[in-house]
Design a protein around this nucleic acid. Structure first.
Length: 564
RNA sequence: UGACCCGUGGUGUAAUUGGCAACACGUCUGGUUUUGGUCCAGAAGAGUUCAAGUUCGAGCCUUGACGGGUCAACCA
């Protein structure tokens, strides 16, 4: 583990400084916050984390580490109507899986409910907050529109003494949901809508997943976040671009609270978008709820649990996060970059194995019936230390239907009648007969092998143009293989104002093959193990897999240089 | 018609702070190869949204346009 950390630090050193790191360098140079760097990852536990969160996790933990600082995990659980411990657990699992550790610094916004209440009381006493009994629509109307100033609430002039009493009644449950709210008294004519007397508390008579029914008033995000940062000693509060206009409010609350030079600073960066998928919790939830996918961990989902099930490694996701960079530019990253990252990682590490997805039987007519040879095969040509294994070879084999063409085109140089190819690690074979059924469909190929070519080379220096993967029929493990394609047919499915993203759902995003054959070696592997099926791609064992019925996911295909 | 933010090859980022626009992905050649993978060598592709200004010199500073985004939830 230590070794992996060192490697990632070394790589990090080579990366150019992003604008956030630059700002931290500047802050440090100015001697801010006693030279401390402390970040936090603050998800709301109302859904599963996706790869955009992974970028934020890498950014927050990575940035702090780079400057010798710390990172907290904090659940932003100020809305009991949406949150649940199910999400808390999955989020912790995902952060750990990505390779990050918050040590003992696990916090919840709900940890601060008492302090937030006390602070609200202070603001009321200072005449900076008031209880407003107007209906929601009226408050909204009074806020006006961005181009026109708002108007004051009639409750804005209530005395602090009376507000104190009213707020206490709010807390005690005297009022019903919607009767009133607590608002900060700031500036109803501010060009920034968030400064027009924002709501601090609303009444929600709902149990909270941690505080149960202790509270019936809950703080709003804007009222809670900066204060939580402050109390935790956060120095750099990194969030996404949509919070940019919240920053003056963030600063306003913190300024009311702080009593020293220390102040947390909000910095915004652009959220991650990846082509051919969507990245908002709302839309992902819709895909799950309406059964367009099989769950949050469906391997087609851009969720961390989905990508994990698909066969993505933490290393590949961290590499991806580094590669896309941090800016304030709103763009769409090509999914090919993600695919590059997992291929690069798995190329170095994945156990090679042979598997036939779309089989056609080959009879090696001059090979003795009943004979089985154990052929030596290299486990990973990129890593000699991974050693070798034995693969059974016999008279009846499966090869890929795609690897045979009765009337080959110019560029096709695999098996065809009369042509000789190599079976990987074993022998040269030559196709002598094509056996068809009554409908004219090819059902079997008859080949001869050259015993002199054992291991895959001919003593006479004869060359072949292709090497095929294969599996011996008798020893083959029959398996199900799930092939995934992009979820949407449009590079930016959520980017069309006039069209619903469901119009772009890819009907072929999942293809299940049930008649696949894999060499027996895979039987010994654990769930989620990554393999390369030679010439095809990277595959892993799905959690649905059982010893009797193995199930593989295709993580990603190999790059294919073959052009028809 | 307000405030704030953002515009650099197809895509994502860089440009040591004002000095020959670089890297990665992708694409295309060629070589090696017992994976049409990997690896190696190479190529094409932007003159930095536009315009003016400051300057010996601007992707970077200034001003103004244009284009895109965010903000008017008792969500975060």
């Amino acid at each position: 583990m230590a070794e992996i950390d060192n490697i990632s630090i070394d790589q990090d050193e080579k990366l150019p400084r992003n604008f956030i790191q630059q700002q931290i360098v500047d802050d440090l140079a100015e001697g801010k916050n006693g030279g401390r760097v402390h970040t936090r990852f603050p998800p709301e536990p109302n859904g599963y984390l996706h790869i955009g969160h992974a970028k934020s996790i890498c950014l927050n933990f990575g940035t702090a580490k780079k400057f010798g600082g710390l990172t907290n995990l904090r659940f932003d659980d100020t809305n009991p109507t949406k949150e649940d411990t199910e999400y808390v657990d999955s989020i912790m699992e995902d952060v750990r899986w990505l390779g990050f550790d918050w040590d003992d610094r696990l916090f919840y916004a709900s940890d601060y409910f008492d302090k937030l209440y006390e602070f609200a009381v202070t603001l009321i006493k200072e005449g900076k907050a008031y209880v407003d009994f107007q209906p929601q629509e009226t408050i909204s109307e009074q806020k006006g529109v961005p181009t026109r100033p708002g108007t004051d609430s009639p409750y804005r002039t209530t005395s602090p003494e009376e507000n104190l009493e009213l707020f206490a009644k709010m807390k005690s449950g005297f009022f019903n949901e919607g009767d009133c709210v607590l608002r900060a008294k700031i500036d109803m004519s501010s060009p920034n809508m968030h400064m027009r007397d924002p709501l601090m508390y609303r009444i929600l008579k709902q149990p909270h997943h941690r505080t149960d029914d202790k509270w019936c008033i809950y703080p709003m995000y804007d009222y809670a976040h900066g204060q939580c940062d402050y109390w935790e000693g956060i120095t750099h509060s990194i969030c996404t671009l949509e919070f940019e206009v919240h920053r003056p409010l963030y600063d306003w609350f913190v300024d009311q609270l702080r009593d020293s030079d220390y102040r947390p600073r909000q910095i915004e960066f652009s959220r991650l978008n990846i082509s051919y998928t969507v990245m908002s919790k709302r839309r992902l939830l819709q895909l799950v709820k309406e059964n367009y996918v099989k769950g949050w961990d469906d391997p087609r989902m851009p969720t961390i649990c989905g990508l994990r099930r698909r066969g993505y490694t933490p290393e590949s996701m961290r590499a991806f996060s580094d590669m896309v960079g941090i800016t304030k530019v709103d763009g769409v990253t090509d999914v090919a970059v993600l695919e590059y990252c997992i291929r690069e990682d798995l190329n170095k590490r994945a156990q090679r194995v042979m598997g036939v997805l779309d089989p056609i039987k080959v009879i090696v007519t001059n090979y003795p019936e009943g004979q089985v040879e154990e052929i030596d095969a290299v486990n990973n040509p990129e890593d000699e230390s991974m050693g070798k294994r034995k693969v059974p070879f016999s008279r009846e084999l499966y090869i890929e239907q795609e690897d045979f063409m009765e009337n080959p085109t110019n560029k096709f140089y695999r098996l065809s009648p009369g042509r000789e190819v190599r079976l990987r690690y074993s022998y040269f074979i030559k196709c002598t007969d094509v056996v068809k059924n009554e409908q004219g469909k090819i059902v079997e190929l008859h080949c001869t092998y050259d015993p002199e070519t054992k291991g895959g080379n001919s003593p006479d220096g004869r060359k072949v143009k292709a090497t095929l993967h294969w599996v011996a029929v008798a020893q083959a493990v029959k398996a199900e293989v799930r092939l995934y394609d992009r979820l949407f047919t449009d590079p930016d499915p959520a980017g069309h104002k006039d069209k619903d993203l469901l119009e772009f759902l890819n009907p072929d995003s999942l293809k299940v093959l049930t008649e696949c054959y894999v060499e027996p070696f895979v039987k010994s592997a654990k769930p989620l193990s990554n393999f390369q099926f030679e010439r095809l791609g990277y595959f892993n064992i799905d959690p649905d897999s059982t010893p009797d019925q193995m199930v593989f996911n295709r993580t990603v295909s190999l790059k294919d240089g073959y052009k028809k």
